[in-house]
Amino acid sequence: MIDSLEADKVRAAARKVVEKLVGYSVADDDTLVSSGLIDSLSVVQLIAALEKELNVQLPAATLQPDDFDTIDYTVETVMRVAK
């Protein structure tokens, strides 16, 4: 799956998921977890929504809430670890 994963597609998915989660659109470098927009207990649900949206698996063992702190980080993280 990772081969066909394009950064633009991931970014669009991340924006969509984050926007629905936060309630309004945020800039790609706005902090989400460290600003309190998404609480750390909900990060795992953000991951689940991303997995569903992109039809990929994100192995939790290597991840930290900080890896999803902005849309930019989220895109990097997904590109790096998605299976």
Partner: peptide
């Protein structure tokens, strides 16, 4: 705790 949060199965 931060390792547990995203990987509770650990």
């Amino acid at each position: 705790a931060s390792d547990w949060l995203l990987n509770p199965g650990v």
